[in-house]
Design a binder for these strands. Structure first.
Lengths: 110, 110
DNA sequence: GCTTATATATAAGAATCTTACATGTAAGGG
DNA sequence: CCCTTACATGTAAGATTCTTATATATAAGC
């Protein structure tokens, strides 16, 4: 798995990305992120839940309690329009970061 | 410039990368990182100096005070063998992270 | 003499991660 | 019926790494 040091800041993008597919609750988000990245990116739920609160406060996602017929409660999150709008520049920023790090490597080998 | 949130953990790789070219002191490292990434990645010196201490304690770089003929002191850092060894797996880890984030995006558009 | 560039350093605070702890429901096997 | 595993959410303490602000000091150019 990818180390804790370098994956900082990835949670936001990962959450927005999985929510782009449709509404999800936290536990399922964690499962999908791990599945879709083939285990490379993994978030503990203790990291995920506080992040979901922060992102809700920023207006990027909106959570709603749902109670299934069996009586189990889930907090189902969906992207807000602001969250959708955030995704594209966020991805662009990540792409820029990758480009910048690549340039540093190339300069060293030039 | 790339935002503070997502560039966490990049300092290590950036420092090791510029030191791969040859020994440097902190002020010059900051200048080169900014230059080589065309301003995309920029570290304030207040972030850089503590990081240099930490990396020295981990044994990845070694600093030595140098006094120029004019009397100005610089702390010149160079890669240790451990630091050189660290670079390749660190780059691999970053590549994995990029791949994982790409997969998340693709899954959303599938 | 004044300003800008060079050069290093510390402090206070914010954000995001870690592991550990805490709670509770549902389903399946023995 | 009990026990274990999976599901589901949450808090707390601590580490790391970033931010801005502050401090010091030398060198070069005008």
């Amino acid at each position: 798995m990818i180390g804790a040091g370098i994956k900082r800041g990835t949670a936001e993008l990962a959450i927005l990305s999985v929510l782009e597919e449709g509404p999800l609750h936290g536990y399922e988000m964690a499962r999908r992120i791990e599945e879709q990245t083939k285990g490379a990116l993994r978030f503990t739920l203790a990291a995920l839940y506080p992040m979901l609160y922060r992102m809700e406060q920023r207006g990027w996602i909106r959570g709603a309690w749902e109670t299934s017929p069996s009586g189990r409660r889930k907090r189902c999150y969906r992207l807000t329009p602001a969250g959708k709008k955030k995704l594209s520049p966020l991805r662009k920023e990540w792409a820029e970061l990758f480009g910048a790090l690549k340039r540093l490597t190339k300069a060293a080998h030039a």
